[in-house]
Design a protein around this nucleic acid. Structure first.
Lengths: 347, 347
DNA sequence: CGATAACATGTTATCGATAACATAATAGCA
DNA sequence: TGCTATTATGTTATCGATAACATGTTATCG
């Protein structure tokens, strides 16, 4: 039963009156864990059922100074990555009894960031999860403002920083996996199409490419690398450029699957055989990538898990603070995995 | 400035005291539109700035019985469709000064639905936007419960119903566009791979296929149609089945781009030339579809706009209710458009 | 059997704001 | 110049719950 009468909200007073007890007793019945006689409890519960009483979480939040709500700041929801992460966040929050108060960022104007945080705090969120990528120095404000924010904050996909909690995919390791796989396949000339290098994640992937190749004794000059902006069309541009600057290339590590898709397409158009002449490996493992032609070898990152982990962590932080225990900040890395398909192959 | 002291929230009382006025005067300064002398206003504003005072939206919501928050119920966020819709919802909500309280559904247990609604109402949302598809009879509860919900509710992607507000893509018209295009291309034997027919949207698309072909004098028996579940792998199965039951097929309308992708792939594998021997048209226009091989002709639906429209509407409903005006429920259809690429071609 | 603990319930203050009402000072006008 | 309208501000009640404290009633035990 939702509300017996749409006119007016049924309050704790109504229940108290109808059951002939004090509001406090009703509160006790609703929240368990306190002395109420079986008889009284039954009577109150009957009235609750009958009137369709639902406590106002709002009022409770005010009086308890705690809302069981997490603030979530997102960016780029229209892309599948952030959306999947948010999905994980939502699932775990639900499981742990929290609701989400969402705010989407459209850009990284710093004033706006303060406003967003303020608007969440004004609604008494118990913690804030930051589901927005680190781009350029857009996270520098973090350092100065963090200690002024009176609730725990957890960042996703942020470069680990001292004293700040974060959860991120280990992009560097993912790239290492990718390059090692290509080397295992016998490739000697491995190029890279990166994401926008102002993104921390893109930079990490590139670093993995570079360092793994160096360590294996290969040359890694800038000619062997081109920069895209994650979109398929930018991937096409980057690939064309790379074909020109690095013609002996026999494998390419592409920083995401969307861009890898256009590499497959352009290769086909030019009569370059994948994987015989050119091995291609992507990053993300979007559901479509198994159906590309040829199917795409890629690095799978579990964004759902990332989101879940984030919520798990921040809820622990919240509880710790509640109980006045020290809250050690920690940075967690989640390991991606290699998914081998047709686009890479031993030669 | 966010909070000058993390210990304790700065309240309206602190400001009042520091400025030597009553809390009411502070409230007046914060909310404009009332008599306050310039001098007092200035003094209060200075104190506000100095203490970093931010009014508690929570407290305000309680006393005003209005939260400037919309409840959003989502389903399948990990898929790009719902995510893009949510993006539109978030943008528009932000623009109109609303926050979003989010709840994700994991299934359609009816009890759970009541709980979700209750938990949103308990937080005083001003309205509810339902971003979950209509599947089977999972929306029948709507009719019985709608009038018990004390705030406006707006449904996305729901079959229009009397007295209930909704916003949806015109899936039927989209299918009509697709089939007409194929007919214009000179195709005579047009098959269909549908989504799960328990989904209203899938059913509408199929209806468009069927009725348009009938109207054009073609036969549309069930052999010319197969059912998938939106995923690429199900699309592959359906396509294989269709090749068998409808071998003379020279064009296929696929209910979403993911499934169309696997049709392209399987065609290539079997040496069926697209578009020469088989024209393929999808639905959704996901960003990757322009980079499929061959690039995919598809029906583009603007989910972002869908979400924006939804918020626009519900906010109007909220305001109308506030001012005690009648609230005529309306069902809005958004028209999809045809995007012609390589996979369809005149013969 | 009296003291103490456990149980059961009520009263009052509080969370942080706004609404409604009250009051005082100034201004404009007949 | 006295009266009403406007401006400026304060006081009290209220939103819907819980926290803290108070009080009365049963068990329990030495």
């Amino acid at each position: 039963m939702i509300l017996s009468d749409r006119r007016k909200r049924v309050t704790i007073k109504d229940v108290a009156q109808a059951a002939g007890v004090s509001t406090q007793t009703v509160s006790r019945v609703m929240n368990k864990f306190s002395y109420v006689s079986g008889e009284t409890r039954q009577r109150v519960e009957d009235v609750v059922e009958q009137l369709g009483y639902r406590p106002s979480t709002l009022a409770r939040s005010l009086s308890q100074q705690r809302s069981y709500t997490l603030g979530v700041v997102t960016f780029g929801l229209k892309y599948i990555g952030p959306a999947r992460t948010l999905n994980g966040v939502a699932d775990k929050a639900d499981e742990l009894g929290y609701m989400l108060l969402m705010k989407e960022l459209d850009n990284f104007n710093t004033n706006r960031i303060d406003d967003v945080i303020d608007s969440l705090l004004a609604r008494q969120v118990d913690g804030i999860v930051w589901v927005a990528p680190e781009i350029g120095d857009n996270h520098t404000w973090v350092e100065e403002r963090m200690n002024k924010i009176p609730v725990p904050v957890l960042f996703l996909a942020m470069q680990p920083r001292n004293g700040i909690s974060s959860v991120a995919t280990d992009n560097y390791q993912g790239a290492v996996l990718a390059i090692q796989h290509l080397l295992d396949c016998g490739r000697k000339n491995i190029g890279h199409i990166s994401g926008p290098l102002s993104w921390w994640e893109a930079d990490e992937r590139k670093r993995g490419w570079k360092e793994t190749l160096s360590a294996a004794g290969f040359d890694v000059c800038e000619k062997r690398c081109a920069e895209g902006n994650w979109s398929s069309s930018s991937g096409e541009q980057a690939f064309i450029q790379l074909l020109d600057s690095f013609p002996e290339m026999d494998a390419v590590f592409v920083a995401n699957d969307q861009m890898a898709l256009s590499v497959l397409r352009e290769s086909h158009r030019r009569g370059i055989n994948v994987p015989e002449e050119l091995a291609v490996i992507g990053f993300d493992n979007i559901p479509e990538s198994a159906y590309f032609h040829p199917s795409l070898t890629t690095i799978s990152q579990d964004l759902q898990l990332l989101g879940e982990q984030a919520v798990q962590n921040i809820v622990e932080m919240i509880q710790a603070r509640q109980e006045n225990r020290p809250i050690p900040a920690q940075s967690i890395f989640i390991q991606p995995t290699l998914v081998i398909r047709e686009s890479s192959m031993r030669i």
